[in-house]
Design a protein around this nucleic acid. Sequence first.
RNA 1: GCGGCGGUGGUGGAACGGUAGACACGAUGCUCUCAAAAGGCAUUGUCCGUAAGGACGUGUGGGUUCGAAUCCCACCCGCCGCACCA
Length: 823
Amino acid sequence: MADQRYDPKQIEPKWQKLWASERTWEVSNEPIGTDERPKSYVLEMLPYPSGEPHIGHLKNYSLGDAIAHFHRRTGHRVLHPMGYDAFGLPAENHAINTGERPRDSTNASIAAFRRAFNSWGISIDWSRELATHEPEYYRWTQWIFLALYERGLAYRKEAAVKWCPNDQTVLANEQVIDGRCERCGHLVEIRQLEQWFFRITDYADRLLDDLQTIDWPEHVTAMQRNWIGRSAGAEVTFRCDEVGIDYPVFTTRPDTLFGATFFVMAPEHPDVGRLAAGTEYEQQVHDYVNRALTESVEVRGAADKPKTGVPLGRTVTNPVTGEQIPMFVADYVLMEYGTGAIMGVPAHDQRDYDFAVAFGLEIRQVVEPVDGEVPEGEAFVSHTADERLVNSGEFSGMDAVAGQQAIIEWLDREGKGHASVNYRLRDWLVSRQRYWGCPIPIIYCESCGMVPVPESDLPVRLPDVDDYKPKGRSPLAAAEDWVNVRCPNCKGPARRETDTMDTFVDSSWYYMRYCDPHNDKAPWDRHVLDSWMPVDQYIGGVEHAILHLMYSRFFVKALADMGLLGFQEPFKALFTQGMILGPDGVKMSKSAGNVISPMPIVDRYGADAARCYVLFIGPPDQDAAWSESSLAGVHKFLGRLWRLGDGLSGDAGPAEQPAGAEGDALTLVRKANWAIDKVTTGMTGRFTFNTAIAAIMELVNEVYHHLDAELGARRFAVATAASLLFPFAPHLGSEVYEMVTGQRVWEEPWPAADASMLQSDTFELVCQVNGKVRDRVIAQSGAPRDELERLCMATRGVQAHVDGHEVAKVIVVPDKLVNVVVR
RNA sequence: GCGGCGGUGGUGGAACGGUAGACACGAUGCUCUCAAAAGGCAUUGUCCGUAAGGACGUGUGGGUUCGAAUCCCACCCGCCGCACCA
């Protein structure tokens, strides 16, 4: 072979320049003439520009780019854009620490990402690039906020909200992990504050039901189902005659209503003080409530916390038994779920059981298994049709499922309750007391009250400030020139809203802006939007399973209801990539000291090797540890392909499959077609790029083993390898394809496997005795069953194990194996 | 506790119910070379055996089947999400 070497530093910039100057990956919103190719929108989650890109970005965009290239070459008009999720706390904290303005550090990081994407050769339509911190973008974020506001989907309300004392801002429920701030890890406090919310709970049912219409990984839809937390049951009214008030409770087990022997309210319930007033427990209740309110989210929420509580000194009426049952206040009841009060059914709820034991309350069994025992010392919580109601008046004897229905109907007739559904999902808290975010376009007027900024005044620009330090209110509040405005209505003195939006608002619609990125009349033209959306393949990390992916679904549904778009789901298919762990198998982090940066890797081995390696490392949806030696192996493989191409470069010609190939040539032609089939299958569905690349390696190995095969066959095999490799290693794929054929590989259609070449004339017949392989023999493809049986029985290995035994049965699987069953 | 995912050589991982371990890393040997780098070729699940060959092997225990890593049941272990949600 020639003594030249594969040199990515020569090859990669050459192709990058060509693609940039020819704007190869740009796609028009108005296809010219007779372009009737189907559209395909391939999108990776946009990066958050903070510092330099890391190895996870390389994997994310290598995955998406491979899919985009495959779709292009299989006849699609592919939209594959890029942008930056530019607002956010890290840039602001960086500013507090260093004094560097968020805008400057963010723009520097964006430049680093742009450089990286170019040096990796990602096929991006750069004409659609956007960043969420630019007024041209956030003008429309504000516009959407106001559209939600007009329809009552954005509202301001005082509520008990989660507050991070370190970041000095409120957080959405979704941003609190185990009682701690997801960003900084500080314990979160509860504060009673007036804040902005989006009414996502209005969409709970649709967000749940429509999960069935999208092709997402099971674990992600499961997480969303879980998070929405829909429970069906009943609302049942318990009346407190002493004060003359009805207290509804929510229960998923109305069939156990006859077993409700006490009643519990959350410490935050507004009636707790009034109910206890004048009773012997007044002081105790007061103290208990105060203590509960000051407890941290983490302590209060601990599942194994012993049950505590205080009697209220009052009773309510159990609506089915008519009994007076005692009322309590206890912190295991949460104000934010259901009605903030529960019926206590100790026999059939473990928490109620624990409470009843602690307070010596009656435990009354009202459901029993048809056969089997009720467990001792714990609640019997099972709920199936194999269980019967007992001690339940007219409902006794019914099975638990039917009994539940019957009791709901009875409650409905008597006006004491009705079927009801509850959700765990809370409304999305979107306001933040921080600087580096999209300003909320609302003005507070002394006489007109809350006034939306008129559309003609958008965007409300984020002003420059000098002090980013959080002080419990937005740093914007100090920008007096900006804050003080005239009321758009009455022209009187007014003040701007100084909170900014959660950055998840920005990223809830960016994928739509890509479709019509330069529109300055509207966030998008609906016809253009509907022609590209929904995203056909979305690719990103699983860490957004709930936050970004649910907020975006909510946005699309809300905007669809306004007639602004004509689809119900933003992301038709989702792929969640696994993480790349450090060489030690531990998640990469500065503290673990195991961070692998993509830039030196690309510099040393080339972008193609880096891209192929992160795809070859394992199934792309699974985590995998970094291995430099495996990366070197991939680099070696690329060099092997390059040398084959180099060797054929003097004989460049069409890469057609040679007709009538025989011997070595036929072997190569078959292997090439086998690889086409393998790679094509791997590109669809599960994205098994690791095995696709392995198939190309096999093809390349096969060429090395048949270097004497005739030129046409070698050229076909090498060109095919380059063509198949192109989505993973676009520079080398282009280089080798050009060396061998003189053509541009990305302008070639994706190769189609020749079905007649996928099967050979003969095959190796596996000969088993009692399911164990005892021999192998070459047989003609398509040979009849009796012929295969005869061949198998004649082998030495089979005879040795059949000898002296009675043949009970022979199983023949044509073109595969024969299994002789002996006794 | 609820929901989801996983457990295969020294390592990463392959395997429509049909040859377990493709491909790659690592290791060993050979080769090219004055030499090295780089390359090429070969071997490589474990155990017994010089070999032919055999036995054992996909977390554990059962089951279905001519045949199970794959399907079913019961467990064990690990990871992820949710969780005093009534």
